[in-house]
Design a protein around this nucleic acid. Structure first.
Lengths: 369, 369
DNA sequence: CTGTTAGCGCCTTCAA
DNA sequence: TTGAAGGCGCTAACAG
């Protein structure tokens, strides 16, 4: 490995002092340098293939040009959209973005904050799905607060109930409105495909959905809430389980058997709500594989309004969340506020932005007669 | 902003020297430290909320624990999958991943490599789609080589024809095989929806596809190759343009007008190849909006086999690329080899892995009678 | 305008 | 085993 070229090398080669070289290359404030010397320094730098050491700069300047983003899984389209938003906002400020995925490991979340803190990242945007795990939650809070007290800027996407800038996504309220709308359309027997119990986002959507149904006078049978991984395959498996439970039996047997013209007796479900679009797509696939028609035999709704899924047919009823925008806002929010350890949340200016989703009704949940 | 706690603070608080504190916390090689002292130091660190300064460590150690990944657009599912692979591989080595999107700007690619180089990133995985722009290509090569000569580890995904570790994706060959397979199925008049001309990936797929058709004795009318952005909407727009060109006219008018029973005369196309799945989906949407049935009226094929699109119907014929695996391999490849400036490509051990895609025929391109 | 001189926070010889 | 001191690459006073 060839040795790194340092500023001293450049200065020597150009016949100036390191101070001059530094000023010529990066221009100290107020200071100016002779054009001819500067040209010489720049030529030397180019000649020697010099690359300034950002770490050394960070040490002396006490700050970096890096921001950190922590997400659940970058392969999740929703997280990718958020990341794109953060990166776009970062680009306008000439900042570099470091991304890490927690892959559903609460401790990974803590480790990543810790790492970002060591790097002296200028800001951290934490969008890892919240976990319902008290221990890791405590350590996370500690780490985050330690970072913030040290002058770090933070924004949390999804409520962590911490005295930090937050973009709260109203999962519960949005799911509630979705449920109300669907009840209005005539749906009366729903099943839910939820994510892992440890993920609060999923739980909020389920409880909000249930609240909405309650409000509409529709009850949700607890046996019809199936937990599974947050993925497409999770949706497929959960839906299959639901079918094996006989949740839809009237459609496949009774309706055909009695031929009475009464379809969908109260024993069978008429609607499946998956806590995210990806799971919903998996559910639709499972239904199709079993010969169940959507929405003729059963309706399906999701959550997120993932753009790459906007073209699946039947078009999916869902709740739209502007993730890219949220990502950009999160970074701005983080960077816009400084943390003062001696003030309480409000005085300190920790701000909370609440984002509600838009219910989008599409083909997968038509009005029922 | 509260001031940062330094190692000196911790040492003072624990009543030891900074040297001892350093060794207690990170354990220098060969050196060992009294258990009791170490406990005291660790207690002090915890008490003071100490966070080691990774930048300072990087300066003195001359290396970091960061790897950089450069992609076209992280919101592109294909890139996100690659990123997930890189991150997974990085996690096993305790490395942090910095991601940046070039957003189709060739100069951004150069800037990002430059930034990563300053950060003294331990490795760079460059997967930004290659641009057919000689100037930026030259600067990119210069920057990349400068980084490699300085001891940096690099892997390039997609051939850059540089003496660097490369994971070559056989876009042309794969597209060729796709074309051959489709010709075998009976397709005779194809149109192509390509990406921006500056992106080599797109061009390779187009030329490979054309070569395959040629080999099968089918010609591709140059007027039927439409360039558009690499996105879903790009696919939609390009397909609309194609329809406005009258590429499908026989289906919508002639076939109905003459009622001769000869459907699909040689004047109309029977197949549309979009250079990636996302564009293909946009194309299908455009067709649907115009009342054209897929595959009954025209067949559609894509490229990438994006997992979230695996459930769209009709299921899309495409070429499968194992992006996640490629990402992981790319990082391993980069980290596994050291660059020796005084050797040529082969001696130096710059390795080239070629990955071919698998042609996957699905409902969108059934055999034609 | 330029050069000299302190550091920045940390690790690592080198003595003790 | 511990501590003192030098140095990593760079910037920012401070003189000249």
């Amino acid at each position: 490995m060839a040795d790194q070229v340092t500023l001293a090398d450049v200065a020597r080669w150009a016949g100036v002092s390191v101070a001059t070289a530094s000023r010529a290359l990066h221009g100290s404030v107020g200071r100016t340098v002779n054009p001819e010397l500067r040209a010489r320094v720049q030529a030397a730098a180019a000649e020697l293939n010099y690359s300034p050491n950002a770490n050394a700069q960070a040490v002396v300047r006490g700050t970096t040009t890096t921001v950190g983003l922590i997400v659940h899984d970058i392969a999740d389209p929703s997280a990718a959209a958020l990341a794109a938003g953060v990166m776009a906002a970062a680009a306008t400020r000439n900042l570099i973005v470091t991304i890490s995925s927690t892959l559903s490991d609460p401790l990974a979340e803590v480790r990543h904050v810790e790492a970002l803190r060591r790097q002296r990242a200028r800001a951290i945007v934490l969008a890892g799905s919240r976990f319902n795990d008290p221990e890791s939650a405590g350590r996370l809070a500690e780490e985050l607060l330690g970072y913030a007290v040290g002058g770090g800027h933070v924004a949390v996407v999804g409520q962590h109930r911490l005295p930090l800038n937050t973009i709260a996504i109203d999962n519960a309220g949005s799911a509630r409105r979705l449920a109300l709308t669907l009840a209005d359309l005539g749906y009366r027997r729903a099943a839910v495909l939820s994510g892992p119990e440890a993920i609060a986002t999923s739980e909020d959507r389920v409880s909000g959905f249930r609240a909405g149904l309650d409000q509409a006078g529709v009850t949700l049978d607890p046996d019809l809430v199936i937990a599974a991984p947050f993925t497409r395959d999770g949706g497929y498996v959960a839906m299959t389980e639901l079918l094996d439970l006989g949740a839809l039996d009237h459609d496949l047997t009774e309706a055909g058997a009695d031929g009475s013209g009464h379809d969908r007796p109260s024993s069978g479900i008429d609607l499946v709500f998956a806590v995210n679009d990806v799971m919903a797509v998996g559910a639709v696939a499972a239904l199709r594989d079993r010969g169940v028609r959507v929405p003729a035999d059963v309706a399906v709704a999701g959550f997120d309004d993932i753009s790459t899924l906007r073209d699946v047919r039947p078009a999916l009823t869902t709740v739209r969340l502007p993730m890219q925008r949220i990502g950009a806002d999160a970074l701005e929010l983080a960077l816009g506020t400084t943390f003062d350890a001696d003030a309480d949340s409000a005085e300190r200016g920790a701000r909370v932005l609440t984002v509600a989703g838009d219910v989008v009704i599409r083909e997968s949940t038509p009005a029922r007669g």
